[in-house]
């Protein structure tokens, strides 16, 4: 029982990363109709930015939580303006291919500089240690990751549901053409929304830096599962991506304990079942 509780906790922490990543993907897909394959690489850049800010400028983890996402979002905007926007009018497949290519470029650039092994980064002293609860030991840093991720997801949900910008994003996600015809310059919102999605990926990267090895391929492992999550949750569904992110984190963690051989395939089995039963995903709707 206690073991189960601990596994659920670890699953939720993993889910916290999935939720941030798939939330960013969902926001970007909704507004741009782009499947951003480089999302994992941007997550990786977030982790490296944290490391670099720390080693070269002495920037603390806390400041990196703010600065690294901003820096990576700036990179994202440059890539969007330089490359992605040229392909909005053609088949979405082109942008998938483009972002796949950019992923390889970003990964190899980091590999040239840092090698494949990666670099270490340690958690701030405030978050070291663990909190004991009965017989259970919850590492402080993991608790922080979970809480912070939930907070960011709630904040994002609030912005999307309750602000004018969020309303425009929802309208443009549902029907970009009509939204333009109602006087809204949808294209003006594309770079900031893209930057926001990128910043979420980078933020996940910052949170990952003290917990996982900071390495050029750290995002590659994650991105495929994240895509599956977005599909399960329902393409472009904000709520779906977050809930499914946490759910899949838990499923993978439990799978790893009770039947390790399938733990990684479990997500895709789940995806296949969901697609058969609800083609639009758990929270999606087919038009």
């Amino acid at each position: 029982m206690e073991n189960l509780l601990l596994q659920v906790f670890n699953g939720l922490v993993n889910g916290a990363f999935f939720a941030l990543l798939s939330l960013g993907l969902a926001v970007i897909f909704g507004m741009l109709r782009v499947v951003n394959f480089m999302h994992g690489a941007l997550y990786m850049l977030g982790a490296f930015a944290t490391y670099l800010l720390g080693t070269s400028a002495g920037v603390s983890f806390w400041w990196a939580l703010v600065l690294a996402p901003l820096a990576v979002a700036a990179v994202g905007i440059v890539l969007e303006r330089l490359f992605l926007r040229r392909l909005y009018d053609v088949d979405p497949l082109y942008n998938l291919l483009l972002t796949f290519g950019l992923t390889l470029v970003l990964q190899d650039t980091m590999r040239l500089r840092f090698g494949i092994q990666g670099v270490p980064y340690s958690a701030p002293s405030l978050l070291k240690g663990a909190i004991v609860w009965g017989n259970l030991l919850f590492p402080t840093y993991r608790l922080f990751v979970l809480g912070f991720s939930v907070l960011i997801c709630l904040l994002t949900w609030w912005v999307i549901e309750w602000t004018r910008v969020g309303m425009i994003v929802r309208a443009a996600t549902e029907n970009p053409g009509l939204t333009r015809a109602l006087g809204i310059d949808v294209d003006r919102w594309v770079p900031p929304v893209f930057a926001f999605g990128v910043a979420l990926a980078a933020l996940a990267g910052v949170l990952a830096a003290p917990m996982r090895n900071v390495s050029p391929l750290m995002g590659a492992d994650l991105i495929v599962t994240t895509f599956a999550i977005v599909v399960i949750g329902g393409l472009g569904s904000i709520l779906g991506s977050v809930v499914t992110g946490f759910l899949v984190g838990v499923i993978v963690a439990l799978g790893a304990v009770y039947y390790p051989p399938v733990s990684n395939t479990l997500v895709f089995v789940l995806m296949a079942i969901i697609l058969l039963l609800r083609p639009a995903g758990l929270f999606g709707s087919l038009e």
Binding site: G177, R180, A181, L182, G183, I184, D185, V186
Partner: peptide, 8 residues
């Protein structure tokens, strides 16, 4: 003109 300008 694009639609958003015409709407405005």
């Amino acid at each position: 003109l694009p639609p958003q300008r015409i709407a405005r």
